[in-house]
Design a binder for these strands. Structure first.
Lengths: 222, 222
DNA sequence: TCAGTTTAACTTACACTGTAAGTCTGTCAA
DNA sequence: TTGACAGACTTACAGTGTAAGTTAAACTGA
């Protein structure tokens, strides 16, 4: 007899670690990481929860996996460029990627991640700084200072609306919690944001340049 | 008849929002925020879970409450000091407090917090900067840049051992994940940490000063 | 003093979570 | 044809937050 057409792919779409991670990533992007459950991932793939365990060891492994996928989207620093330009590009790319996956920054900061993309990312960063003349110790400190700004800034940003127009609205809805007699400065600032004389948006590059310039002076002194 | 001795305090230790928050804070400090459940908090107080709802609206309100308690422990910036000194003291105090309550940094960064301690903390910070001559907009940006460093640095730090000796051990346990051919720079750096030629500890004040110095130059230029 | 109201505890129940453990079925090699 | 195995399945358990209803004690006004 002729073989059935199912013999090539044993099922219309066989489960795999890759397909599970993609589905989980989709769910996290849509509803945040707290919307991620084994049952929902399974449902997304037309399968029961326990079937996932044939391909991944645990939910933690799934989260580690999608974190590494996201980290893999960050542009690696180019060693052929001036270190400051390379670090700036890397930071801007990281900032952009983390905004696209709002759950990711916290996931990265609250767990130890040693996926391949993360290791490559850190290795290239330290390498770029080392080649620029930083000592091992200073390269390590520089990387830490830059990333402190990337993650700290982005996390603060994610707690607030990104759009300037929404910002004025948000200020308006919060102003009732900020009586002028108790919190005079915050009250005043909120008024400025509400009447549009200031968009309230922060500038990622401002703090980034403070750090990069400081590192530059340190490098020249050495 | 004489009144029973229970008439003064109706029970040996009546439940209250305050007592609930203290118990929750204790639990979070001991086992992290994921160890915090309504049932465990209740048990800690010799009571059943649902009784807590007579005093707090939800688990979220408890978390908001303990976050605000922790924020309240941070030294407020003193307006009578030079802004840079005041901001440095505030940052060091925040860093110290966040290390004492390792769950708090993430809780602060991943939720909108408008408790009284937080409002006072932000108000005094903006006020201090405003009195130092920053415009409203620049005061806002300055506050954001400084806090990006505080939270970003502390969160990275919390994922790693604080003790120098533990650092070398940690490097040793992770080195097998870092083959030298794939991650040459990280491998090298790990070796330096393992053999003790570098303690691997980061310096909170390094990045902090980059930000403060950058802000200072901005202020002088205005 | 007694009835009525209020407070704050209680129990029960529901829908959800991650995952340990065991079962069934279809494909392939020998 | 048979045995192995992979990969799906079901069931079950201990945990979660909290909606809903109940009970018992304490305070209040007549």
């Amino acid at each position: 007899m002729a073989k059935t057409e199912t013999s090539n792919p044993p099922s219309p779409s066989p489960l795999s670690r890759e397909r599970i991670l993609q589905a989980a990533l989709r769910l996290a992007d849509e509803g945040g990481i707290e919307a991620l459950s084994m049952r929902k991932v399974a449902q997304e793939l037309g399968v029961k929860a326990m079937s996932l365990y044939n391909h991944v060891a645990s939910k933690d492994e799934i989260i580690d996996g999608i974190v590494d996928i996201v980290v893999g989207k960050i542009d690696l620093p180019r060693v052929d460029l001036d270190w400051k330009i390379a670090m700036r590009q890397r930071a801007l790319s990281a900032h952009e990627v983390l905004l696209k996956h709002p759950w990711a920054a916290i996931a990265i900061m609250s767990r130890i991640n040693i996926g391949p993309a993360m290791l490559r990312y850190v290795d290239r960063t330290i390498g770029c700084l080392r080649e620029a003349g930083f000592s091992w110790k200073m390269a390590d400190h520089a990387w830490n200072a830059i990333d402190s700004h990337i993650y700290g800034f982005t996390l603060q940003e994610l707690n607030f609306p990104i759009e300037a127009s929404a910002y004025a609205e948000t200020a308006e809805s919060f102003i009732s919690y900020i009586p002028p007699d108790q919190y005079p400065y915050m009250h005043q600032l909120s008024l400025y944001i509400m009447d549009g004389s200031y968009d309230g948006l922060y500038d990622f590059e401002l703090g980034l340049d403070f750090v990069l310039d400081g590192l530059d002076r340190l490098r020249e002194r050495a």
